[in-house]
């Protein structure tokens, strides 16, 4: 007892370094530093900038609520971009989740090739938001791209269909996002595995056919997973950027201008002064919108999600 307390007194540093909490702090430092530098500090700064006129090159000047007032009262592009983004999220997300579910159901069999198929279908998600896919996508849908070449063979007259015209352009982006269903599919697959076989057997004995079993057993038990995928993919859709920026650059006439792209263009315009303050205000409005949508989804949870 005496020796131990003597040891402790010997070196303050040894005592400090051997404390459990010190080790904890040191090991979590990488996260803490990253969190501070790349999340908390930028967020606080952007909140401050959103009340400023700030062009990056000169110091910010405080202008109060002017940015927000201008966004809500004068900025037609804001309304347009928000509309496009909501449309994209509203159509794209459910399509993607449904598609993921269908493919997961098909792949939920025991067969030797299944592993290969799962990997193949997951592949598009790995290369997901990447620049390469966006460029590939643009090339595929161009006037003389692959898609038109195939369509031209099937339906004469379609070979010069203009995918990037105002109507269909947004669908080119929606198809891309639906195609990247892999991560949702994997989550569906793992929860499909967890549905107890007994339930299916019981249903069969009760005389339920394939569809009935899906409707009364599979679907209700999957609702928590559907909910999770829906929340995650909705947030992703609202924050989508690469597709719009690289494939259509928002055009024609802003018909595919995602909110994030509009925000980026304000912050880093091709020419002219940056409007970083304005862009920051846009970012905070988006944060509030995404939070509200997520909250709504959570509120709806009790209505349709089956919690066993």
């Amino acid at each position: 007892m005496t020796t131990r307390s003597l040891d402790r007194r010997e070196s303050g540093f040894t005592r400090w370094i051997n404390k459990e909490s010190t080790a904890g702090v040191i090991f979590s430092l990488p996260f803490i530093i990253g969190f501070l530098m790349f999340l908390l500090i930028p967020m606080v700064l952007s909140l401050y900038y959103s009340f400023c006129k700030y062009d990056i090159q000169n110091p910010p000047t405080w202008i109060g609520l002017d940015n927000y007032i201008k966004i809500f009262t004068k900025d037609k592009t804001f309304t347009k971009a928000l509309g496009v983004t909501v449309y994209f999220a509203l159509i794209g997300t459910p399509l993607k989740v449904i598609f993921a579910l269908i493919v997961a159901l098909i792949l939920n069999h025991e067969s030797r090739a299944v592993g290969f198929y799962r990997a193949t279908y997951y592949l598009p998600s790995i290369i997901g938001g990447s620049v390469a896919v966006a460029i590939l996508w643009r090339r595929m849908f161009e006037s003389n791209g692959t898609i038109n070449a195939i369509l031209g063979q099937l339906f004469p007259g379609m070979q010069s269909y203009n995918w990037f015209a105002e109507g269909p352009a947004i669908w080119v982006l929606i198809i891309l996002t639906v195609w990247q269903f892999g991560s949702s599919m994997l989550i569906f697959l793992s929860s499909l595995k967890q549905i107890p076989m007994e339930l299916y057997e019981a249903a069969s004995i009760d005389g339920a056919n394939g569809f009935k079993r899906f409707w009364t057993v599979t679907l209700p038990l999957l609702t928590p997973t559907i909910f999770f995928n829906l929340v995650q993919q909705t947030i992703n859709s609202f924050l989508a950027f690469t597709q719009s920026k690289l494939i259509t650059n928002g055009g024609p006439r802003d018909s595919t201008l995602f909110y994030t792209v509009y925000q980026y263009n304000k912050a880093f315009p091709a020419l002219g002064k940056s409007q970083m303050g304005y862009a920051s205000a846009l970012a905070w409005i988006m944060l509030i919108i995404v939070s509200a949508v997520t909250l709504l989804l959570f509120k709806s949870r009790s209505k349709w999600v089956y919690d066993a």
Binding site: E142, S143, N144, S160, N162, W163, F164, A165, E166, A169, T248, G251, P252, R253
Partner: peptide, 26 residues
Amino acid sequence: NTDEIANVNVQDIAQSPMVFGATPDV
């Protein structure tokens, strides 16, 4: 027109519609 321009790549010289494209209408 605006829609047709969206279908061609006018930014990149190598893909400019003057030097690149399958059919005259693009």
